[in-house]
Design a protein around this nucleic acid. Structure first.
Lengths: 289, 289
DNA sequence: GCAGGCTATAGGTAAAAACTAGAGCACCCA
DNA sequence: TGGGTGCTCTAGTTTTTACCTATAGCCTGC
C-alpha cells in the first residue's frame, strides 16, 4: 500500500469512473484497474461496486476517501516545506526561432505551476540562456539534452489545394510545386539532399524565418510548405498531409550547458509532466549529447 | 517521493548509519544509499552529512524526521482501520513431520504479529488444515504452493568424527558408514537411487521419524545422517559438512487447497516477510502446483 | 602505513508498473 | 431485438524501477 495507489483511488472516487480517473492521471485505464484491485486486496475490502456506467463507492470507499486525501496532501506539504525554504530561483530560457509555441507554453506553464518560487525570463535565442528549448540537432557537445517530444514533418497546403485530395502524398508529387521555404530549419539539409537525389525541384515563392509566418503564407495560398505537425495542428485555414515515402522528424527538447547545474527537481518536474502533453509514442527517452 | 523512501529515511535517521539501516530494512546497503540520494534530490536539500563512521542528520533531516514518522504511522493506521473491521480470522495450520521448527516458528510469529485478529490452531499433519507447512514434493495437484526457502541437505556427524576433517565430503566417503535413517524424507528415493547407482551402502543403525531425534542420535555418536541445513544449524553438539559431488535440496513452503480461499493479505504478509528470515538466494519465486 | 569500518558507483537481474489489444457486459436507441 | 457505445477486466508484452553483487574510495585507529 503506497501513496500511488491512494492517488489513483482519489481520482476514481472523485470521477466515479476508472476511465475518467485514468485520463486524469495520464495513464491507461487497465493500470488504474489493477492498482485499485491490489489496494482492495491489501485492505481486504471492496472499495467500489462496478457497474456498466462507472463505479460507485462502497461504505469502505467512502470511509477511506478523507484519509487518502489527508495522506496525499500531507506528503505534498512536506515537499513544499523544503522547497519553500529554498532560495527563490530565477532562470533565463530561450526559444529556438523555428519552434512554435502551443506545446512549449504548456510546458512553461507547468514549470511555473509546480515549482514555487520560480521566476522565468525569456531571452532571445541569440543570447545565452540557462535553459534552451531547441532541437537535438542544434545541441552542442557540452550540452545536456532532455528530449520532450518528436515532431513528424507534414506538408501544409491551402484549403482546396489539389494535393489535399490525397490522404497522404508522395514526395514526387511535390515536384515543381509553389513552395514557402523556411530557414533555419533542422531538416533543411536532408530535405535538399532527398529532393536533389530524386531529381525534384520546388518553385520557391517565399523565404521566411518562423513557422507561424510560413503557415500564414500557406493559408494565403502562396504555396505549400513543410512544417512539424505539432506546430501546424489546430489551424483551420490550412490542410495537413503526411508524406508516405519518406519520414522526416525532429526531436524537440530542453538543453542546457553541462557545467550549469540546477536543482535536480527542476528538470525532474519537467520530465515528469511529459506524458501530460504528448502521447506515449512521441515522448521518448533521455539522452546526453 | 513515496513512503518507501520515508521508511528508509527513518531507519537511517534512527540508526545514524546507512549500513545499519539497510540491515534493519532487510535490504542491501546500496539500495539505501541511492534511495536516500533520490529523496535528497527531490527535496533539494541534504538530509545527512556523511562521514566515515556513519552519518549525522542535518537541520533539514531533523526537521523531516517527525513528519516522516507521522506519514508512515498514518498509513499503517489506515491499513489497520480496515483490517480491524474485518471479522476475526481463525485458521488451522499443520506442520509436516519432517520439518523442524526454528524458521517456521519465526514465520508463525510474524503472522500473529502482523495480522491483527488472527487466531491459529496447530493440528496434526494427518488432519486436514487450512494451511500446511510442507515441501513442494508433497503437494497435491489441487494445491497452491508458496515456496518460502530452499534447504540444502548436509551430512551431520558427531563432533570429532573422522569425516569432520574435510571441509566438504564426497558421497563415496559415506560408503559403509554408520547411518541414522529418517523417514518420511522427501529426498529418500533420490538418495537411495544415487547410492545404489554408485554401488555404495550405509550401515543403518537407527530408523527415526523426526529431524530432531535424528540429530540427537547423531550427537550421541550413533552414526551420521543427512539433514536439511536450516534444521541442523545452531546445534553445537554436531558437525555439518556439505556434499561436494551431489546437490540435494528441498523447497519448504506453505500449501493450501486451491478451493480454500483466504483474504489475500494473509498470504501476502507471509511472502513479504520472506527475506527477513532467509537469505535472498534461498527465498525463491512462487509457483502453482 | 595497513586493516577495518563506512558510503558511493557501476553493471546486471528481477520485480513492478505501465502499455496495447481484445473480450465480456450492460445499457441505450433505433 | 439487434447493433452500437461505453465501461471494466484479462492476457501478453514492454518499459521502468528497485534491488543485488562486486568493488572502489575514503576516513579512522592501530
Amino acid at each position: 500500500m503506497d501513496v500511488r495507489s491512494l492517488r489513483y483511488f482519489i481520482a476514481v472516487f472523485e470521477e466515479r469512473s476508472l476511465s475518467a480517473a485514468a485520463k486524469r492521471c495520464f495513464i491507461a485505464q487497465p493500470s488504474i484497474s489493477t492498482t485499485l484491485s491490489q489496494l482492495e486486496e491489501d485492505l481486504d475490502t471492496k472499495l467500489f461496486v462496478r457497474h456498466s456506467k462507472g463505479v460507485a463507492p462502497t461504505d469502505s470507499g467512502t470511509q477511506l476517501y478523507p484519509h487518502a486525501c489527508r495522506m496525499v496532501n500531507e506528503l505534498n506539504d512536506i515537499k513544499d516545506m523544503f522547497r519553500k525554504n529554498a532560495k527563490p530561483l530565477t532562470l533565463s530560457i530561450s526559444l529556438a526561432p523555428f519552434l512554435s509555441g502551443t506545446l512549449i507554453s504548456q510546458v512553461i506553464k507547468t514549470m511555473l505551476d509546480e515549482i514555487p518560487g520560480l521566476t522565468l525570463s525569456l531571452v532571445d535565442a541569440s543570447e545565452s540562456a540557462d535553459l534552451r528549448f531547441t532541437c537535438d540537432s542544434y545541441t552542442k557537445n557540452d550540452d545536456v539534452f532532455y528530449p520532450l517530444w518528436e515532431d513528424d514533418y507534414v506538408v501544409a497546403m491551402p484549403v482546396g489545394y489539389w494535393l489535399a485530395d490525397y490522404t497522404s502524398i508522395s514526395i514526387k508529387q511535390i515536384d515543381k510545386q509553389p513552395f514557402v521555404s523556411r530557414t533555419p530549419c533542422d531538416i533543411l539539409e536532408s530535405w535538399n539532399f532527398i529532393m536533389q537525389k530524386q531529381g525534384l525541384t520546388t518553385d520557391v515563392r517565399a523565404q521566411v524565418k518562423t513557422e507561424e509566418y510560413a503557415l500564414d503564407l500557406v493559408a494565403a495560398g502562396l504555396g505549400i510548405s513543410l512544417i512539424p505537425e505539432h506546430s501546424a495542428r489546430g489551424r483551420g485555414d490550412i490542410v495537413l498531409r503526411t508524406l508516405n515515402d519518406i519520414a522526416l522528424k525532429r526531436v524537440v527538447g530542453l538543453a542546457h550547458n553541462k557545467d550549469r547545474s540546477f536543482p535536480a527537481y527542476v528538470i525532474n518536474t519537467i520530465l515528469m509532466s511529459k506524458n501530460k502533453f504528448f502521447g506515449k509514442k512521441s515522448a521518448i527517452k533521455s539522452r546526453v549529447a
